[in-house]
Design a protein around this nucleic acid. Structure first.
Lengths: 200, 200
DNA sequence: ACCTGAACACCGTTCAAGT
DNA sequence: ACCTGAACACCGTTCAAGT
């Protein structure tokens, strides 16, 4: 057929990312493929390789939008909180709820691994750092005399806990031998950690 | 060829699991396949489906041995510790080191997902519960008056943190904008959490 | 210049046919 | 009874050939 200029390079990229997100939402992680994306946007697989280097690059773009939404979700709830502790709790629960509501994309963000040599591009790392920065702010309020580096480490510590609870919880590795709901678990985890952090 | 009775069903299963572990160690997660396992043990793919229902069942067996080793590693270091806090720290670091040294298998244990309907078999859940039980013991010592259920929840909370730090750390999602080594991060996380937990 | 379609080297899974 | 080998329906990726 060889249709010409129906869409620009950028338009095809945008269409592909949107199609990939649809497939993830409807069919779950693991059923995403270049061939399915190509079919969904009405082009051949070959065309996909004209606008993306490979599947990894497409997934990286999908993950970037996931990360953006994740940050937006966390920031949104942190506005109308009375103190740093409730802010951090609200952010943690927002993270959990995003992961629950967008399980396939949230999963892909953390399970996807680039091939051996390939490093994650700088702009992507910067995005991740941006999320941690949002977590740092309330921690800084909690301990105004600490330097930024200390609070950045604390942000990584507390978020490791929140992320880990989501990971284990949403993958069914927490709830047996009794009810252990991720949200109550996360609230208690954040509470206990912050007692220690505030005291030091 | 159709060789007969060279190996029993159980022997073929054991050989396959061992071969799968080798492939994971040498080629990383994601390059495990039924065809590679079959070739490694000198049988056809068809034979693999005679002794395992499918790839998921083989992986479940591999994950079971990983879980056993993980528990052994944690228990080993908890023997000669002076108090519950140092026990928990030692266990957390043992978990990290196992994950570092056996990255492919540790990854597989947490990234593998069974197809939609399939539930994880009970015996596997029991294994996971067994690991949490080991974490519960020192927590119980720390707060002898608390009931088992409270300590089991705490075990899940603290291990969410340890697991999350391993996950993010080993996948390069922690160390940018400064050095954040997983081991110092985990130690501090456990310390802070336990201050809160002991106080309550 | 843009896009296709067929090819290549892989997958998981099944099952008639061979010994 | 045990095992094979070919088949089916999928993958990611490449690239000569078409318009």
């Amino acid at each position: 057929m060889a249709r010409r200029n129906d869409h620009s390079r950028e338009e095809i990229q945008a269409m592909a990312i949107e199609a990939a997100i649809d497939i993830l939402n409807n069919e779950g992680p693991g059923s995403l493929s270049t061939r399915k994306v190509a079919k969904a946007i009405g082009y051949t697989v070959g065309t996909l390789y004209l606008v993306f280097k490979n599947l990894d690059e497409l997934i990286l773009q999908v993950n970037a939008t996931t990360l953006d939404e994740l940050e937006d979700g966390i920031v949104a709830v942190s506005q109308d909180q009375l103190n740093p502790v409730s802010t951090l709790k609200a952010m943690a629960l927002a993270y959990l709820h995003y992961a629950q509501d967008n399980f396939a994309r949230w999963s892909l963000l953390f399970t996807w691994r680039l091939p051996e040599g390939e490093p994650v591009p700088e702009w992507f790392d910067a995005k991740v750092a941006g999320v941690f920065e949002k977590v740092r702010e309330p921690l800084q309020q909690l301990r105004p005399d600490s330097d930024a580096q200390t609070c950045l480490q604390a942000a990584r510590e507390i978020w490791s806990g929140v992320h880990g609870a989501c990971d284990l919880g949403l993958n069914g590795k927490l709830s047996f031998g009794g009810e252990f709901k991720p949200d109550t678990l996360i609230e208690s985890l954040v509470e206990n950690y912050l007692i220690g952090f505030a005291k030091a």
